[in-house]
Design a binder for these strands. Structure first.
Lengths: 224, 224
DNA sequence: CTATCAATTATCCAACCGCATAATAAGGCC
DNA sequence: GGCCTTATTATGCGGTTGGATAATTGATAG
């Protein structure tokens, strides 16, 4: 008695892994980590649950892979913003801040996603390391932009300024994600440019409306 | 054959509820929301699992109660900081910022706890409302301090300044919680005072070392 | 056209989840 | 000191979880 099986087609390894990772991220985003069960992931990816074990060592490994994928996409997109930005240091920094405070970086899903993975990060040392790397890379990028703008102050001061500016961006990012209706279009960007400008002692607000594609994903949120 | 039962003593309602809520928060802090099962909560509270249903309508109700308790404690302690602060507007604001960037507010557990509940908040409208109230209350407190310092500017400007300063505090709080070893003692406070001062155009750094008890809990982190 | 083998599915399993209910004992009241 | 209320424990249930294994398919090479 052959019970009718679901017909299927073979896909190469990368495609399948990618589909599983995408499905995992989607589920975590919409329902938290607990919503990403092996069965739900498989269903969303259009396969059956057992397949996960065929491509990953277990559910934990899939989660770790999804997290790493998310972080790498973030850093890659962040770098892309800088590649298309102008050459004036002030405009480049303004573009960076603007990109970090606009959709799709500012997004209701993004915050949930970030929060969900932070807990995993708190338990799994491997995830913690993945995070630390990407987080510091993001801050270093910001610090580099500040250095270009300020004409290379003392490294200590640069680090402090980068931390403070990063905090502003993170904080505004959080509020924008969490309370999307509480801010008018562009208000978040305006606030960010003013605040970062105030901290650095430079006027960035004039740069806001030009040369910023505002179309990629970045940001680097914490955990330990 | 009377199988030996665990001996117990009766406790009044408030004590038991409190114990269950405390146990819930502890478990969420150390293992995320998924670690807070009814059995684990009961064990940590020193009772058996069935008792939870006797005091709460279900596990969800207990989680909601725990979240509300956490938020209320935060706001209460935040108000306490202001009560013991001096009368000079500048010193009061400095004390507020300082308290938000020192232990026990800055704490590894705090961030995990916040992140865990944010996901629940994302699903449960009741929790979302609980959050929105406490969050806006915190920001209003900050805005009030800024108004005292600046001599009442236009409400629009006050709101914008409060949002920006709140973002700085939130961002530094996150980094401090997540990367406790990345900052020297007092560095976070120093950074926060300088950044908030820069945004408001006032020098707060001189106020840092005095009159701030640095011993209560506050902060108000986002979600939607 | 067929044999081969990896990819995919189907099925089973032990553990755990939250919840419901029955049995039991603790403590106040007279 | 005995009784009555009820807080508390103990036990059982249906459902779901992640993981393991066996069966079956589809692609591919010869």
């Amino acid at each position: 008695m052959p019970p009718d099986r679901k017909p299927y087609h073979r896909a190469d390894e990368d495609t399948r892994r990618q589909a599983l990772i995408t499905a995992t991220l989607a589920l975590v985003a919409e329902g938290g980590a607990q919503a990403a069960t092996v069965r739900a992931i498989a269903q969303k990816a259009g396969v059956t649950a057992g397949l996960i074990r065929h491509y990953f060592q277990g559910k934990d490994a899939l989660m770790a892979a999804a997290y790493a994928h998310l972080m790498h996409r973030m850093t890659a997109d962040s770098a892309a913003v800088l590649r298309t930005a102008p050459h004036d240091p002030k405009a480049r920094l303004a573009a960076f801040v603007t990109a970090a405070l606009c959709p799709p970086v500012v997004d209701g899903e993004a915050l949930v996603l970030w929060a969900a993975f932070m807990q995993e990060t708190h338990r799994d040392p491997a995830m913690r390391q993945t995070h630390a790397q990407t987080y510091l890379a993001f801050r270093d990028q910001l610090q580099s932009l500040i250095a270009d703008l300020l004409g290379h102050s003392a490294p200590q001061d640069l680090r402090r300024l980068a931390i403070a500016c990063n905090a502003v961006i993170d904080g505004l990012w959080m509020e924008g994600c969490a309370l999307p209706d509480a801010f008018a279009m562009g208000e978040l960007v305006d606030l960010g440019l003013h605040a970062v400008g105030a901290i650095l002692g430079a006027d960035l607000a004039g740069q806001s409306a030009q040369g910023t594609p505002v179309s990629t994903q970045s940001n680097m949120k914490v955990p330990a």
